[in-house]
Amino acid sequence: MKTIHKIVVGVIVMTIVGITAVACSSTKKGYTDVPDTATAAAEEEFKIEKSGAQMWGETCNRCHIAPSPADYNDTDWETISLHMRVRANLTEKESNKILEFLKSAN
């Protein structure tokens, strides 16, 4: 088990270093509605951006039945969005787009 343990610890350290490097090398500070980088532009070319409503339907049903926008007010949705972003490991983009939709439709 000692060898396996060393390997696990090694992999974790490498993951942290790797993720930090990738996360910090991206200059974009947060998700913006108007994508400004080349990758975002390329992404745009291939497919039409998914709407927040569609993302809500797909993502919020994965673990429990998705609540409907009317279930909470804007303030609560902000708290819930942050909670779910962390608990469900959602990307910033998913979480922001869904929050926007929930606030616009309640």
Binding site: I19, N89, L90, T91, E94
Partner: peptide
Amino acid sequence: ELRGAFDLGGPTLNYSV
């Protein structure tokens, strides 16, 4: 713990350590 997710332009990858 550190956790998070990466948007791979369609697929997504999430991790926690």
